[in-house]
Structures are given as C-alpha cells and as structure tokens.
Simulated assay, not measured.
Amino acid sequence: MTPALTPAQKIIQRAQLQACLSSASPAPSAPESTNDRPDSRSSPTPNPFSTPSSGIPNHVTSRPLSTYAQHLKEQFDLDTTASAEVNKYCGLTLEERLLLNFIVNLKHTQMLRKTMNKSEDYKIPGALLTSLRSHAFMLLLSPRLVAYRGNIAKATIDAMREIGVSDIPAPHELGKLKLVQKAINDYLTDCRYQIKDKIASDLKKKQKNRSNVATLTSKIIGEKSVTITLALYRRISFLRFVAESYPEDFKGDGFWVKADTVVGEWREAAGKDASKFFKFTYKEDCSNYGDPSQSGVVATPSAEIPAHQKVINEHAAKVKAPAPKPSGKKRARVEVNDSDDNDGNLSHGEDRQQSTAPTPTQFIIPSRSVTPSPADASSTTTN
C-alpha cells in the first residue's frame, strides 16, 4: 500500500500542477526562467515550488521552499538527522525528487513483502505448540463452554495472553496468528474425535458394565492436565446423554452439532440458569452407571480450582457459536452471560440451530427411570 503523502510531497504535487498550468499558457512578455533550483530568489517569475496561499487556491506566494521546509521542521519537531535529510531534499531538482519518491515507494513494498514472507515462513515453537494444545483441551472441556464448535481457538489465544504465556504472537501479527489458530483447530478436531470415540467405546458395553462418569472422565482426559471437578462430571454426563438420546446424530457427523443445539435449547428454556439440566443428566447418569465417589477418582473442590483454569473458564463462557445456516425463518440472536457459575450458569447467548432437545416439561429420557442417586450424598466430596 502506497504511504500517504508527507507535507513535503504534497508541495511537490502542487508545484507540478502549477508548472503544468504555466507551461500550457506561458505569458507572452515574461522571459522563461532557467533556474531549476526551488530556493532561487533571483528569478523574477513566480517560484513553482513556493507554497500556495491558503486563502487563494492556485496562486503562489514569494516564500521559497527552504523557508517553508524550516517551518515544517519546527512544526514536526524533527531531530538533527531528519532535518539534514529535509535540507538535502530541498536541494534536489524536480526530476531527482520524483525519482527519490519512486524508490522510497519501492523500498516500502520490499519491506512489506519481507514481513509477509516472515509470517508465511513462521513455525510455531515446540514449547508453544504444546502449551496451545494443553490450554485448548482445557477450554474444550470447560464446564462453562458455550459451544463445542465455536471460536475456541481465538478464546484459547485470548486466555493464554491473560495468563501470561510467552511467545504468543502479538495481535498485529495476523499471519502468525492465522497459523496458530489453524494449529489449534486441527488439534481440536482430533480431540473431538477422541472424545466421541471413547464415549462410543463405553456405550458398546452392556449397561451394567459401563463406566461411571468419574471413570469415563478419567479415560477422556488421559494424561492431559485438566482439573477434575463435579462441574466437569456434569459436562461429561451431558455428552453421554446426547450420545444416547440422539443415536443417529452420534453415529454420523452431527454429534457436536446436536450437542450445541441442545445447549442452546436448554439456555433458551432456562433463561439465566441452565445448570439444572446439567445437574439432572448428572444425577440420572449416576443412577444408571454408578456413584463417581466410588471410582477412586478424586474431584477437586470448586474453591481450589487453579487460577489458570478459572481464566480458561471465563473465556470459555465468551465463545461464540458458529453462525447458523441461512433459512427461511429468522432466528433470534441472544447474548452470552459471563457469570461465575462453573456449572454453565448460561444465559441467552448465540445463534442456535433448531433442535428437538427436551424442554423443561418434556425432560424425560427414554428407557431411563429417575431414582434417588448416590451422587446427592457424595456431592460434598466431589464438588
């Protein structure tokens, strides 16, 4: 992009226009000036490099360019080196100035190309890539995540900046950030596949042999560094509920779409607090698959969640869901509630797709019966 003209370059532009007008209709009685220097004071003709009067356009004053240059140097508070460059510029002929401007523009273009090449050649450092994946996975499993297919990559980068992770590209380094976001999205695609695969493997077992939610959560996390909490159990129970309740979507490619749709429906039905639905699926999961407190997996109390996980949770609550596909009906747009409820104290938030998710009065899971759950007695030890 060509840089904006400087005040000195604007003078050149006006002088060129004035010179063209003068050469097109020369005065018959006035001898042509042979002095090419803009600061010459001996020429009886108007100096084409003098500054036009601000009140009368297309007329020139008798002030030489060097005088105006001195005024500009003082106005812009130029240092000694810059002032010397201005003096050199004023001493050039018109042809020399035009050539200089052309070369400066070429240099700017060359510098821009080098900057672009640096972004294209950028490779994410190994330590940063490891950190990106770790934080992205934490955000994907955050109990406050609004959409499993949302802009998690951006939220991950924002959270890592707030946490103080080094080597994150600066906001103006768009080329590098694009590569970083792509790396995160590629990793998240693999994570979603792995989570779905582990849920599917567990559902292949007979119901009495299926893992309780604590064991299933532990399998999903594996060796990754994620704080296990009661709120996380509820989210894993929710994912298992979606898998069981919508088998066709789970077998196909619509599992995560359906999960986001159900979250959206619950948020709409519950107003500012959809946590009761996550708690319901959790209790029902415990009733069917066992008490998580008997699994040997120790859950961290909410008051002891690490500071970095709290930051991750805050940014997970700000994730925006993908825009819905165009349809004949206009869907309502709602806002994300940035509350402190780790259970998904979710208010109206993002564009949603239509769903057959249960409403509060229809929240009955086929082939399941809700009975008093041991999780109620164990919540004080797992929360």
Rank of each mutant, 00 (worst) to 15 (best):
L5D: 12
K325R: 07
Q309H: 10
D167K: 13
K123F: 11
A155M: 08
N345M: 01
V165S: 03
Q354I: 09
A4R: 14
T382R: 15
S83G: 15
A82G: 04
S302T: 12
A147S: 12
I11F: 00
Y89R: 14
H172W: 12
T215I: 08
F277Y: 14
N209A: 08
I199D: 02
T93Q: 14
S378I: 02
I124D: 03
S378N: 13
L112Y: 05
A332T: 09
K118T: 15
E223A: 13
F250S: 05
G150D: 03
S54E: 11
T359V: 06
G254Q: 09
L230I: 06
R267C: 07
N209I: 02
K251E: 11
P326V: 00
R333C: 03
L100P: 06
C20P: 00
I124N: 08
A84W: 08
N288G: 04
L128N: 03
P322Q: 05
W256C: 00
L216Q: 07
E223G: 13
V334I: 07
M160P: 01
P360K: 15
K178Q: 14
K251G: 03
Q354L: 13
F76Y: 13
L94I: 13
V104W: 12
K320G: 00
N35G: 01
Y246A: 08
N151K: 10
E244I: 04
P44F: 02
C286P: 01
S53V: 01
K276L: 09
S33I: 03
S53M: 01
T261N: 11
N87W: 00
A82W: 11
S83V: 10
D202H: 03
R37L: 11
S218I: 03
V262D: 06
I364T: 11
K154I: 10
K123E: 15
R267N: 06
T359N: 14
L78G: 04
E268F: 14
T356C: 10
A323N: 10
S369A: 12
P171H: 06
V86Q: 10
R161C: 07
A316N: 04
L139G: 06
T109Q: 15
S218W: 11
E120L: 15
E223W: 07
S142F: 09
S275D: 05
G290N: 08
N101V: 13
T156E: 04
T67I: 05
P3D: 04
I103N: 11
R210H: 01
T361Y: 11
S134D: 15
N288V: 08
Y246K: 01
I168K: 04
N47Q: 07
H71T: 07
D260C: 00
L174I: 09
F49V: 01
S287I: 08
S367C: 07
S237K: 05
A147W: 00
A269F: 14
S339A: 02
K320M: 06
